[in-house]
Design a protein around this nucleic acid. Structure first.
Lengths: 342, 342
DNA sequence: CAGACAAATGGTAGCGCTACCATGGAGAGC
DNA sequence: GCTCTCCATGGTAGCGCTACCATTTGTCTG
């Protein structure tokens, strides 16, 4: 009885304070903030003034509790430092920066189990939407997604069986396109070099293989992979391994651009002429690919757009008009450059 | 009266369900989950069983509301894609992955105003701790940090006047060390090339300038900078500008490694011998610096450790034993490589 | 063996907000 | 004039959890 108010709260103004100051009911303040159209202009102005004067900021936790829905987008990616996912995440952030939605990122470390665990944690918050990288969820992760009770967007690649919605492109086609390009350019002994062979890399490899088999040039010994995380220095090492295994190699399609750059550097170091002796193609088309000497052919992917598009679809679904096109293929673009211009 | 329970909640089990099943009070369940030591082993086991059977996951929103404290670390960085911050964030994630704390990242886009806005938003959630990049907060952002009511760690650099705690290193010293190294190696006309000249880059520039002035070799025309975001291709362009302005340039200290790589590529392209004609030094020591041909001298910074250390300090402060050393200087290391070995 | 005290457990009352259902008054239709 | 709708607003009752204060039991002290 002694301290009827703000016993535990840090003394921050609450919606009741605003209501009192504006001379209206708390619920009207709540409405004025969330659905301004439903409150008369007079009151809306008074309320805005009271909010500004008190410096009132709604408590998202109380909001989430009362409405059984948090204004949070859950985002699950396998890596925080891999530029590819960083770009997707940046697209998500930029698209959401002016909305009331917060973002919660989970790092799965390329682990299905970790993904399940994070999905469990995220689910407990009743997020407004979930964006997850990849389409290879474990059965139980998939069940969690299906029962999340919110829009779900799988990003980075497309596939036949979306949980809900999808934005990405075909890694298989990307891999095949790169390999076909190398073949057209006249290379014959084209190796595949890949680190951190996640499911997307596996599909790029499958695409490469399809192209090589179609040309009657496939050979298991052309493939050099490792589960170790990708890096430029690893690219160099893998290339040396590949060359040791198959000295007549005349081209390489790399899993990603870091690897490709490592290959290029090793060629410099070993005085291997690119593109005359060896042709190099990468994947993702990082900025540096066009600047390197020689510039490196790469498959450009639209990572930032994947992020923005995923958010747009989720937002539409939240608003009630789920896009009729549930699978969006953003494609890719082969950037032909000096490294494959024989 | 018709539906006394779970009117709004999605039917998820609540703490009351667990309590009923375990035959105990709700508060005991709460305690068993948060402070197991305070509950007898018998009950703890029963409760654990009930939790497992029901698949109960505590609602973090209700928790935050009731305890006036969310189990959230707020993290503010200027960029999501810049590898430097991505590494720090990765350190933070890894250190927190086994804790109950969630992470909320804000992207300030190098804007003080945006930082203020995000601090406002984060503050409304009563985070358990705040980690912010840099020491150049606006006065009002600083006030928000001081009144946040939780541990605050400023990361990336050290300075004289922490809001609370600090982990980083001296960018000024880093810049000076790199410049001094170039001088010792015999370079004289050493340019400074920098993109996105944020406060940390400014201090590196100041360090470079101090070294050059001490040697009596400073010249304003040696400096080429731009506020444009950094990239490898920009490094190439800036280097061409620098060379046009000062054709007798015989060395460059680059703001960061992306720029340095761009410079190296341009040297390849223009048949400028590195390190004979031009010496190159970068900053941060990304993996590729040691692989490039020639390998590039760079100032290695401990970004991942900055993240882990910041979390450790915040966690200690939350636990009540604030570290006596409030400013932690993790230093840096000059990696001498071929690009400056004249 | 009373009294003090700690340890283990539970009841009650909110945290700040919104869903749900009233309420009152303005306008529409007969 | 009267009912009927619709709109703007408000009251009440929680959302799921924990802080605070009992209450009970067991254990130690003198």
């Amino acid at each position: 009885m002694s301290k009827p108010r703000s016993r535990r709260g840090g003394g921050r103004p609450t919606i009741a304070d605003v209501a009192r100051k504006a001379g209206v009911g708390a619920i009207t303040v709540s409405r004025a903030l969330r659905e301004p159209g439903r409150v008369s202009e007079d009151l809306r102005r008074q309320i805005q003034a009271a909010v500004a004067e008190l410096g009132y900021v709604p408590d998202p936790n109380a909001r989430a509790l009362a409405s059984a829905r948090a204004e949070v987008f859950g985002v699950l990616v396998p890596s925080l430092t891999n530029n590819v996912f960083a770009e997707v995440v940046r697209g998500i952030y930029d698209s959401l920066s002016d909305s009331p939605f917060r973002i919660q990122i989970g790092n799965t470390h390329y682990s299905g189990l970790e993904e399940e665990r994070l999905l469990q944690v995220f689910g407990s918050q009743r997020p407004a939407a979930l964006i997850v990288a990849g389409i290879d969820q474990t059965p139980s992760a998939r069940r969690l997604l299906e029962n999340a009770g919110c829009p779900v967007v799988q990003v980075m690649e497309t596939g036949p069986d979306p949980v809900d919605m999808m934005v990405g492109f075909s890694h298989f086609d990307g891999g095949r396109t790169a390999a076909e390009h190398l073949l057209e350019a006249g290379y014959r002994k084209i190796g595949f070099i890949g680190a951190r062979m996640d499911p997307r890399s596996q599909r790029r490899l499958a695409g490469y293989r399809a192209a090589m088999e179609a040309a009657g040039l496939f050979d298991q010994r052309l493939i050099t992979t490792t589960p170790v995380p990708s890096s430029v220095s690893l690219g160099r090492e893998l290339f040396r391994d590949a060359l040791a295994k198959m000295p007549t190699l005349d081209g390489v399609f790399c899993n990603n651009d870091d690897i490709a750059l490592g290959v290029l550097f090793e060629c410099h170091r070993a005085s291997i002429d690119v593109p005359k002796q060896i042709g190099i193609a990468g994947f993702n088309d990082l900025d540096m690919m066009q600047v390197s000497f020689p510039s490196i052919t790469s498959v450009r992917t639209h990572r930032y757009e994947i992020g923005t598009r995923a958010v747009a679809m989720a937002l539409a679904a939240i608003a009630g008009n789920r896009p009729e096109q549930r699978i969006v293929d953003l494609g890719f673009e082969l950037m032909r450059r000096e490294s494959t211009a024989r």
